[in-house]
């Protein structure tokens, strides 16, 4: 297995705030790697360090074979970044954006124009190519943003919360594109707050919490860590009245149901029991200090052992 990104003991603080501490990470070449974490966990700082925007205070990071500190231009030659705010020029047209980036990536005039047309066609932007980007929809802007990252087919592509603010359809479109980019051989490193996104896209997932990797593995490995089936008590309109994680055994399920039995809610009209597989949500809540209600978190963690 070739390693596309390897980080050891990365630390970064801004003034008094310790954003990353002792972060270790390895990403296999050709895979999609999802970095998951609540707001403020240090996801963007991690990307900033890997893409040479920010220098780490301590630790080493090697991206596509080049050290981010000693050879930043070597890293830059081999990566593309699609940041959180769309890095497109609003005044220029879609084609002008692509040609500009091609020229800035060392392509000649003719080659740049050819590459731009190719990408416009393939990202379904040919009809809008001559229109200023300011008139594009959010989804089109994101597609152009990603096309700009692919002007040169670099080895590693960084996506910082690529689908934030997109509607469901545009999100689905973008997921497909990212998957296809990875299938073509590039390594994709993405951060996200959406668990579904990580579940659908990422081969491996790392959960970042308070500047450290709190857990790492495939989605099913992570889910297995939380335990077995989750027992839910549902109200008449399918609303969740109570929820217990179990170890998946008959005894465990019965204990959870017994526990519901002792609550007043279980006797309400139309109340019933349902069982579901643990989701990445459960993993996230169990592992991070994220924006979960404390009571529910305590439930999850308390019933784990």
């Amino acid at each position: 297995m070739t390693i596309a990104i390897e980080a050891h003991g990365i630390a970064k603080r801004f003034r008094r705030v310790e954003v990353l501490r002792d972060l270790d990470l390895a990403v296999a070449a050709g895979s999609v790697f999802g970095l998951l974490g609540p707001n403020g966990a240090g996801k963007t700082t991690t990307i900033d360090i890997f893409t040479t925007l920010v220098r780490p205070d301590a630790g080493t990071a090697v991206v596509a074979g080049a050290d981010v500190r000693r050879d930043p231009d070597g890293v830059r030659a081999r990566i593309s970044l699609t940041g959180q705010s769309a890095a497109v020029d609003q005044v220029l047209t879609g084609r002008e954006n692509l040609v500009m980036l091609a020229r800035l990536s060392g392509l000649g005039r003719r080659a740049g124009r050819a590459r731009a047309d190719e990408l416009l066609e393939r990202f379904d932007l040919a009809d809008a190519a001559a229109r200023p980007v300011s008139g594009y929809s959010g989804g089109m802007r994101r597609r152009l943003d990603l096309a700009l990252s692919l002007v040169v087919p670099t080895r590693v592509i960084f996506l910082d919360e690529p689908t934030t603010g997109l509607d469901t359809r545009s999100r689905g479109e973008l997921w497909r594109v990212v998957r296809e980019v990875a299938d073509a051989g590039a390594t994709v490193f993405l951060t996200t707050q959406y668990l579904e996104e990580a579940d659908r896209l990422a081969d491996r997932i790392a959960v970042l919490d308070r500047g450290r990797i709190a857990a790492e593995g495939t989605a099913s490995e992570l889910k297995a860590r939380v335990g077995g089936e989750v027992v839910q008590l549902l109200g008449p309109d399918d609303e969740v009245l109570a929820e217990r994680s179990t170890d998946g055994t008959v005894h465990g399920l019965r204990a959870a149901v017994d526990e519901f039995d002792r609550t007043a809610a279980s006797t309400a009209d139309g109340a019933r029991v349902a069982i579901r597989r643990p989701s990445l949500d459960d993993v996230f809540l169990a592992i991070t200090s994220g924006p979960a209600e404390p009571a529910r978190r305590a439930d999850l963690i308390g019933s784990k052992g």
Binding site: A77, R78, S80, S105, G106, L107, V152, T154, A184, A186
Partner: peptide, 15 residues
């Protein structure tokens, strides 16, 4: 998959 390309530094004052 073709071998991944390198992003070149623009020559002279191209940028």
């Amino acid at each position: 998959p073709a071998p991944p390309a390198l992003r070149m530094r623009p020559r002279g004052l191209t940028a």
